[in-house]
């Protein structure tokens, strides 16, 4: 056996000890998983989306298992910025001191709200936050309720506003797969101050109980995640990597193993996020980081960065 492979990567203004981050909405605020795995084994984590005001979330049922996946319509339930700063940030700051990247995911329904959130986080977060991730899958209430993320002009506007308010904090933009081509959205983000794009968010879906003739989710529609969506995520990461040479991409969608993570790196991602896998196995993020190291060792890859973008030109 040769020397241990280098697993450190740089992405979106951050240097990570390894390419595996926990995805927003699947890992709480970090503390929830502390009893279940060694958090220090992660490259970092992305928090549950934080909004200016607390949100109770949608009426249940909120989730439904589907073939090799699940639908969720949680409704971005979260504690709100004030409680986040007071109750959640101290633990996250401790993780950051241990070398984890702490990325705070932002949810808002207008450009002005996004800018206010970013400004207040940049001002109050101190040493506790490494970067911000903007969720542009939410409805643009002032823009008629259509999601920010399906309109390149709206992506550009919200990215510029957040980047302007965030000071030195790097800004990532999390893109929706519910578009024909993600490249124009990625370009709009990266040309307006984003250091990286994360993709993909969940695919909009539906489940029906035919016998009861009822939708399975109270919200009717929900976001599909899990291994069922991995081919879509790989395709979209590859599309953006090919369309925008040098783009910093964080890949996610259905990663269940170290080898799945390697597939995303080959498609063009510099780092990955693990989401639904944490529900299936609370130790998944640490396991997958270990498996990716083992994959590199077995494949004779001395530096994980050798994998990044390996298939862009194929």
């Amino acid at each position: 056996m040769g020397a241990a492979p280098n697993m450190s990567v740089t992405v979106g203004g951050l240097t990570l000890s390894n390419p595996v981050l926990a995805a927003s909405g699947t890992f709480g605020y970090g503390r929830e998983y502390a009893p279940h795995l060694d958090l220090a084994a992660l490259g970092g984590l992305v928090t549950k989306g934080v909004s200016l005001q607390p949100r109770a979330g949608n009426a249940p049922p909120r989730i439904r298992e589907t073939a090799c996946g699940m639908l969720n319509a949680i409704g971005l339930a979260n504690v709100g910025l004030e409680v986040f700063l007071r109750d959640k940030l101290p633990f996250l700051a401790g993780l950051r001191q241990k070398g984890l990247a702490v990325v705070v995911n932002l949810y808002a329904e207008s450009v002005a709200e996004f800018a206010e959130l970013a400004g207040r986080l940049a001002g109050a977060a101190g040493e506790g936050v490494s970067a911000l991730e903007v969720n542009v899958s939410c409805p643009n209430v002032k823009g008629g309720g259509m999601a920010f993320g399906v309109d390149p002009r709206a992506v550009a506007e919200v990215t510029a506003a957040v980047a302007g308010a965030a000071g030195a904090l790097p800004v990532w933009v999390k893109l929706t797969p519910n578009v024909a081509d993600p490249a124009p959205m990625a370009r709009a983000a990266l040309e307006n101050g984003a250091s990286a794009v994360s993709l993909i968010n969940t695919l909009l879906g539906m489940a029906i109980d035919a016998r009861a003739r009822r939708p399975r989710l109270a919200n009717l529609y929900g976001g599909l995640s899990g291994p069922a969506v991995k081919p879509v995520g790989l395709r979209m990461v590859h599309q953006v990597a090919r369309a925008i040479p040098g783009a910093h991409i964080v890949g996610l969608g259905g990663i269940m193993s170290g080898e799945d993570a390697a597939e995303y790196l080959l498609a063009g991602a510099r780092a990955v996020q693990v989401g639904t896998a944490s529900f299936v196995d609370p130790g998944a993020c640490a396991r997958i980081a270990g498996e990716l190291t083992e994959f590199c060792r077995q494949q004779g890859v001395a530096d994980v960065n050798e994998l990044v973008g390996g298939l862009i030109n194929s």
Binding site: G25, T26, F27, G28, E32, Y33, P35, H36, K48, G57, N58, A59, P60, R62, I63, M70, N72, I74, A77, T276, S278, F279, P282
Partner: peptide, 11 residues
């Protein structure tokens, strides 16, 4: 989904 307080599915 998770049983550990993260997914917020079991409202």
């Amino acid at each position: 989904a998770c049983g550990v307080g993260a997914c917020l599915g079991c409202a």
